[in-house]
Simulated scan of single mutants.
Amino acid sequence: MNLIWLIQQSNIEKKMEEAPDSAYEIGVVIGSYLPFVALAAIAYAIFYYTKKNKGSE
């Protein structure tokens, strides 16, 4: 997990150096973290759904 974070961090830093303005930097940060947030939300939804259905048996 740390390896993915390190690779992602170096990629973000490179894009920040090449950014034309601050709006681009914000977009890079959001675009970099959004997939991880989406996956966490999907995992939580699946967990909640299975926990809810398992308890009603």
Rank of each mutant, 00 (worst) to 15 (best):
S10N: 11
E17D: 10
M1H: 03
A45D: 12
K51W: 15
G55N: 10
S22F: 12
I26A: 07
L6K: 03
I12G: 01
I42L: 12
G31K: 09
Y24I: 07
I4E: 03
A19K: 10
M1A: 10
N11M: 03
A43T: 13
V37A: 14
A38S: 12
W5H: 02
W5F: 11
A40P: 00
G31F: 07
A45C: 12
S22N: 08
Y24A: 03
E13M: 02
I30A: 05
K52W: 14
Y24V: 10
F47P: 09
V28N: 07
I7K: 09
N53H: 06
W5R: 07
A43K: 03
V37G: 08
G31A: 05
A38T: 15
E17A: 11
F47A: 10
N2Y: 00
E57V: 09
V37D: 10
K51Q: 15
Y49P: 00
K14H: 08
S56A: 12
A45Y: 05
S10Y: 00
Y33K: 03
G27R: 03
Y48K: 15
E17R: 07
K54A: 15
L6R: 05
I46M: 02
K15Q: 09
S22A: 13
V37Q: 08
E18N: 12
A41G: 14
I7R: 03
L6T: 08
G27H: 04
Y44T: 04
Y49S: 12
E17V: 01
M1G: 00
I26P: 06
L3K: 12
M1L: 06
Y24T: 04
Y44G: 09
M16Y: 13
I12M: 00
E25C: 11
G55Q: 12
W5E: 00
S32I: 00
N53K: 01
E57C: 07
G55E: 13
L39V: 09
I12P: 08
Y48H: 13
M16R: 01
P35G: 00
G55K: 13
L3Q: 10
G31P: 07
L34N: 01
Q9C: 02
L39P: 00
V29Q: 04
A23L: 11
S32Q: 02
A40E: 12
A43V: 11
S56E: 14
I7H: 03
A45S: 12
A40K: 00
N11C: 09
L39N: 08
Y49T: 07
I7N: 09
A40W: 14
E13Y: 06
V28Y: 04
Y44C: 08
A45N: 09
I30M: 02
A38C: 14
I7A: 10
I30R: 01
I30S: 01
N2W: 02
Y48A: 15
I42W: 08
Y24K: 10
I7W: 02
Y44K: 06
S56I: 15
V29H: 04
L3S: 06
M1T: 05
E17P: 08
D21L: 13
L3P: 07
I4C: 04
V29G: 06
N2C: 01
I30E: 02
K54G: 06
